[in-house]
Design a protein around this nucleic acid. Sequence first.
DNA 1: GCATGTGAACCGCTTCACAGCA
DNA 2: TGCTGTGAAGCGGTTCACATGC
Lengths: 238, 238
Amino acid sequence: MTTPELPELHLSGAGAAARQIPSASLTRLTIYLRALNSLLADGTERVSSDRLAEAAGVNSPILRKDLSYLGSYGTRGVGYDVQYLNRQISAALGLTLDWRVAIIGAGNLGRALAGYSGFESRGFEIVSLFDADQLVVGAEVGWLRVSPITELETVLERTRANMAVLAVPAAVAQSLCDRLVDAGITSILSFAPVVLQVPESVQLRKVDMATELQILAYHAQRAQEPDLDADSRTRSAQ
Amino acid sequence: MTTPELPELHLSGAGAAARQIPSASLTRLTIYLRALNSLLADGTERVSSDRLAEAAGVNSPILRKDLSYLGSYGTRGVGYDVQYLNRQISAALGLTLDWRVAIIGAGNLGRALAGYSGFESRGFEIVSLFDADQLVVGAEVGWLRVSPITELETVLERTRANMAVLAVPAAVAQSLCDRLVDAGITSILSFAPVVLQVPESVQLRKVDMATELQILAYHAQRAQEPDLDADSRTRSAQ
DNA sequence: GCATGTGAACCGCTTCACAGCA
DNA sequence: TGCTGTGAAGCGGTTCACATGC
């Protein structure tokens, strides 16, 4: 099982990348983007790291550090130009490219996603919506028509989708995921509460609402019981 | 390196809680729980860390480390009893307590959450569903009836909710969040794409689908462009 | 013998203080 | 002077190898 001594330097695979943005920073960058969009809507032209950090709910040193991964886009003594910074972050995240999203599953969740206006405004176009249920196929959801899952490969190709969102029951998630991968999709966001297996070349992200509630439950439980290490089990001293 | 033997017990900081489970471990623990439930359904009675780790999509050392935060629930040379471990993790996460969830917003997303069977099976009972739209109020969603948001405080109290899920538009999220906090809710899961301000005593978790897609876009962009450090800026060698 | 449990090294993110520049 | 940008220190999580106990 364990290969004893393989000094594995993890540049992730071939053609590995220089200067990868840490994943925690990535998450925050999307939040800065939201805050900048708000500022743009307000007509604000300049912003300091302190104020932007406050709007994003983080501290300003880490905001500056995050931005420094992208480059130096501010003016010392002044701050950041809202529109310029917005563009730079968008470009760094790849949002200036053409993202065409297929949604698999037209249940409540799939429909919620299809109707979510937040996507369009941030460079994601939803180009197809699928379901296995014949009663749902053909229905209109927003400006989309539900396609039969049997035509998955054909429609993916015709609509030139390059991302997919899985909003299907756990039982069928893996087989649909496999079909997506075979069809050439390399970015998948899954809402199905199962562990999916994908090749390394495919980016898979998961969102699980039950997980989130369970984590809340853990913290709530701790808050309820001030009696924290009431560990009555016999614990042998280290 | 410094002092050879310092009986260093790491209570993390002032007034901090004893023996907090690292957040990354917490997330994985919920996944183990799912895997264990599958094994239970299969009738499997024992499992090794290798096999459980494989089912959860992680490596086995980190699984054992995660479990070691809870205690020693395995048998060396043998493995873990599926049912027993399941109960221990559930207890550690606080899932044996009574969690009563209110869903705020009965749009597609709120309805998707209300109908999500994954909650019930894991100890979360959805006790109320609210909306501001008079056309939606009174409608039946599953076995719930949509309550008017004007009666939020009354219904929260009557149904004894102790958690809430915000599935409302960004514009109204903060004010509803404030009402939840004032009503005594201390655990909130938000799907609204805004930064919410809450007191420290309130646990807030956020799920944002646009953020997830943006992170996928970043990785997909990198995969597309092998030409990664085409950093043509003049960098003064400070 | 075999699989769990864990101290210790390692690595990467966060923090901080200050250097650099308008 | 003021705010950005960043090296370096600090810290927490992951990895590993092996001690532990059935």
